[in-house]
Computed example of a mutant assay.
Amino acid sequence: MAIERRFIQDSMVVYKVFKYLETKLDRAGFAYVNIQRTPILTRIDVYVTDPGRVIGRKGKSINELTSELSKKFGLENPQLNVVEIKDFYLQPRIIAQRVCKLLEIGKKARPILHFTLKKILDSGAIGAEIVASGKIVAKGGRSKSLRVAAGFIPKSGESGRLVRSAHVTAYPKSGAIGVLVRIVPEGTIFPDKKPIDKSKLELPAVVRHAVEEPPHFPGEKV
């Protein structure tokens, strides 16, 4: 049972580190983190859209963050590596957070979802799905669900594990809204399907003509 207990403990540490960095590096466009343990150190790869906010002036911020991770989670000799993400629209968590922020400032859900789906597919994805569930209507209205999708999105089996996904909750005045984003990046190879030709994918007309321009990502050049 000792080995099983160790696996569970390691998984809990990874989850806690993820949730901590999710809050701590929100303004840096945090996407995800990879943690690898070795006998002499713990390698932590943090993927963000704006590395400068993580590193700080003369490396001050990254040194403080490394020290905090060591003290809070008992990581042995943590080595923090910051990786810049350039494919903003292929990162489900970043997309979900952006949609949530727009909903929280009062933007209408339908045009936001249509425009975001268009940008995801224009960035190279071969399939994407965005679902907003909750108080997406005016305050006092019933909860409902709004889904937009295009391309190929497997739902189950081994193929379903290859889909990137993230769920974030928005808290506008009308009430909580859950946002689920699922993305299949270009080049994904499914064991039970032939390679997908992205040029043959057709977007719904309402998505092709979406014009709702959301705020830019941290670190994104405009």
Rank of each mutant, 00 (worst) to 15 (best):
M1C: 00
R5D: 07
R5L: 01
Q9D: 03
V13N: 13
K16I: 02
K16H: 12
V17F: 01
L21A: 05
T23Q: 11
K24Y: 10
L25D: 00
R27M: 12
A28W: 05
V33G: 02
N34M: 12
I35K: 04
R37F: 06
L41Q: 13
R43N: 12
V48E: 02
T49G: 05
T49C: 06
G52I: 08
G52H: 06
V54W: 07
I55M: 04
I55W: 05
G56C: 03
S61C: 08
S61L: 10
N63M: 10
L65C: 06
T66K: 11
L69W: 09
L69Q: 11
L69C: 08
K71R: 11
K72H: 10
F73T: 11
F73N: 12
L75N: 15
E76C: 05
N77K: 09
Q79C: 07
Q79S: 13
L80V: 13
N81H: 15
V82P: 00
V82T: 04
E84H: 01
I85R: 00
I85F: 04
L90F: 04
L90A: 00
R93C: 09
R93G: 08
I94N: 01
A96T: 10
C100M: 08
L103N: 04
L103C: 05
L103Y: 06
E104G: 06
K107I: 09
P111S: 06
P111C: 07
L113I: 13
K118G: 00
I120M: 06
G124R: 14
G124A: 07
A125R: 10
E129F: 05
E129P: 05
E129N: 09
I130K: 05
I130P: 01
A132W: 10
S133Q: 13
K135C: 09
I136S: 01
V137Q: 12
V137H: 15
G140V: 15
G141P: 12
K144H: 10
K144S: 13
S145R: 14
S145K: 15
L146S: 03
R147K: 14
P154A: 04
K155H: 09
G157L: 15
G157I: 12
E158N: 09
L162V: 02
V163S: 07
R164A: 11
R164D: 13
S165E: 15
A166T: 05
H167L: 14
T169C: 14
A170C: 09
P172G: 03
K173S: 08
S174K: 11
S174V: 09
G175N: 04
G178T: 03
L180W: 10
L180M: 10
V184P: 00
E186N: 12
P191C: 02
D192H: 14
P195C: 02
P195T: 02
I196W: 08
D197L: 06
E202C: 05
P204H: 07
E213L: 15
E213M: 12
H216P: 06
H216G: 09
G219K: 09
V222E: 07
